[in-house]
């Protein structure tokens, strides 16, 4: 089946006083109908930026400097603001990391839901209100019929986030871009939201880009996973392969940083050091200063995505022409 979303060689730049920063470079992926693509990676890796570029809400002076974005086969990366705004409500539903910027503090949550639905679907006031209450129930707001007339500030952080989710879903879009949708939620509500998102993907064929650093949520929800690092995709592949036997040394470090649930450890394993600043991305592989497997070629040439057998990884260890090959430890995760 044709992909709902195609991102080709996307490049996003930020002109600054100190020169132009490249926030995204050569990012490409597809999402098929009913498919959930999980996007993970260190904060600042460019996950939110990728989502913002797709929905046409890059914060100025950020701009798309190259590549293309197609929704159902049509370019959407060069559309005038008004046209993109209509697409955003109807065809793309967005769930942002920061719930307060999405909700209008001056309107009740019910009014915001009703207006969103009526903009995109032919509904009477009464039906729209009924549906608004229905969506609030679906995302687990207790006493929805009573709280539909509340203002956003009367809700807890997690409840506001659930209202944002209801807002993104209520116009039944073809693509959902969800940036950390369940981060503010506890596990039991999270389970409910994840089940809802999965059901929508399955039943309505909704495609979903799910940005989160919660690997448990990824494992349960995503079909494929993209790991981002310093504005590029470091590894992409089926969820089972990426989570259980990652191939890129950065993915390996990321997966081993997950705190264990079944015991307490003295020291959590992590990845030494920090991701480079955009203005100081090293030559060659951007991960090379932190990589335990670095070799000469890594400091010179930048690796593209290479087939590893189970995934595709931007790492020279998987290039047959390299002088060094992936050690057993990495090969088998």
């Amino acid at each position: 089946m044709a992909a709902i979303l195609e991102v080709r060689d996307l490049r996003v730049e930020f002109p600054t006083r100190r020169g132009t920063l490249t926030a995204l470079d050569g990012v490409s992926f597809d999402i098929a109908p009913g498919e959930v693509l999980g996007v993970v990676g260190e904060s600042g890796a460019g996950k939110s930026m990728t989502g913002a570029a797709i929905i046409g809400l890059l914060e100025p002076p950020g701009r798309i400097a190259g590549g293309e974005i197609l929704l159902n086969g049509k370019r959407i990366d060069r559309l005038p603001y008004e046209q993109m705004r209509r697409i955003r409500g109807k065809e793309i539903g967005a769930i942002f990391q920061d719930p307060l910027t999405t909700l209008n503090p001056l309107y009740t949550v019910g009014r915001q839901l009703v207006e969103t639905m009526q903009t995109h679907l032919p509904l009477s006031d009464r039906d729209a209100r009924q549906r608004a209450i229905g969506w609030l129930e679906m995302v687990g707001i207790p006493a929805a019929a009573q709280r539909v007339d509340s203002y956003p500030h009367e809700f807890s952080g997690g409840m506001r986030q659930r209202v944002v989710i209801a807002l993104a879903l209520c116009a039944e879009p073809a693509l959902i871009v969800a940036d950390e949708p369940t981060t503010a939620l506890d596990v039991s509500i999270q389970a409910q939201i994840i089940a809802l998102l999965k059901r929508l993907a399955r039943e309505k064929g909704t495609a979903m880009m799910l940005v989160t650093h919660d690997m448990g949520v990824i494992a349960e929800t995503a079909d494929r996973v993209a790991v981002m690092y310093a504005g590029r995709i470091a590894e992409i592949g089926p969820v089972r392969s990426v989570v259980k036997s990652p191939k890129h040394p950065y993915s390996v470090g990321l997966m081993s940083s997950i705190p264990p649930l079944d015991r307490r450890v003295a020291q959590l394993s992590g990845i030494e050091g920090a991701m480079p600043r955009l203005s100081a991305i090293p030559q060659g592989c951007a991960f090379n200063p932190r990589c335990p497997h670095v070799f000469a070629r890594c400091r010179q040439d930048r690796p593209e995505l290479i087939e590893t057998g189970t995934t595709r990884a931007a790492c020279w260890l998987y290039d047959p022409a390299s002088e060094k090959r992936a050690p057993e430890a990495v090969q088998h995760g």
Partner: peptide, 17 residues
């Protein structure tokens, strides 16, 4: 209050450590 909820796992590990 949820000091690491907005953080990815590798930075979360660093902050918790």
């Amino acid at each position: 209050d949820e000091p690491t909820s907005a953080l990815d796992v590798s930075v979360q590990a660093q902050i918790l450590n």
